[in-house]
Amino acid sequence: MSTWIVTANGSAVPVLAALAADSVSALVVGSAQAAQAAAEGPVAEVVWIEPEPNTPPEAYAPAAAKAAASAAPEVVIAENTPEGRALAGAVAVALGAAVVPGASAWHTDDGVTRVEYARHGGIVEEVLDVAGPVVVLRDAVGDPPAPTAAAPIRKVPAQGLAATVVDEAQAPTESVDLTAAKTVIGVGRGLKAEADLALIEELAKALRGEIGCTRPLAEGVTWLSKSRYIGMSGATIAPTLYLAIGISGQLQHMAGVRGAKRIVAVNTDDAAPVFAEADYGIVGDLYAIVPAIAAALGT
């Protein structure tokens, strides 16, 4: 069986290659450094497409699809990022492959690949049998394996579609890694005003934890950076302690915190779904409860 990794991010390759049981090739659409970073992973070969200056990697999706189709891999692991998904879409169509987002495990036997994944925000798990190629989407999280002898890099000439980056501005946002924090204080729309984040910061200091949030607090209003929102489309965390403050507990959020050892919920609504998934649920007003917890920790 053969596996291909498809990504626009070379440093994702070692992490993703560690998921495959057998011989792996990597297809990287990116810079020379990206191709070299990929070659440090446990891969047999790096197939490299170098974009023209100012051309987004997405413009090379058809070229990536052509390269993948000629090798006809049974399994393609695509990185679950916007660029990775764009490449995966074209590759899947070219291969006539099934697409499985968030696959947790897979193996191929006699030409049939069995894939496991969670659906509908995690309310069910499904096991699929696919008698043909499969594209799975994965986040590149975790530590990369120790670098190996550099794999050969084969550059393939490619023509991009007509798309040019004509302007780019760095937004001054911070980037935090919530997955490393032992304690995470998640805050939701129960918070009435941006200035009230000071209350949460006090608690975070007392707990020596990181602040996370629900999607509406990082999008729409931008009280916190996007790297702080947790859930199905944000970060997946497994801290020792997670506090959900003013969070209703919709499954799109809870999908990202179920790995926590202990979950605490503070919510005024005793019917909020978050309580069903909490170890300790305080029914009360966060504006009274949060300062009280911070004070109790100080004693």
Binding site: V124, V127, V130, V283
Partner: peptide, 28 residues
């Protein structure tokens, strides 16, 4: 579209939670 067969469906096991309720009327 490529054919796939659903071999199995199941409800995932959720981690067991203590489910302790604390009345917040007295915050302290």
């Amino acid at each position: 579209a490529p054919g796939v067969e659903v071999a199995e469906r199941r409800r995932p096991a959720r981690p067991a939670r203590k489910g302790v309720r604390i009345d917040g009327a007295d915050a302290t």
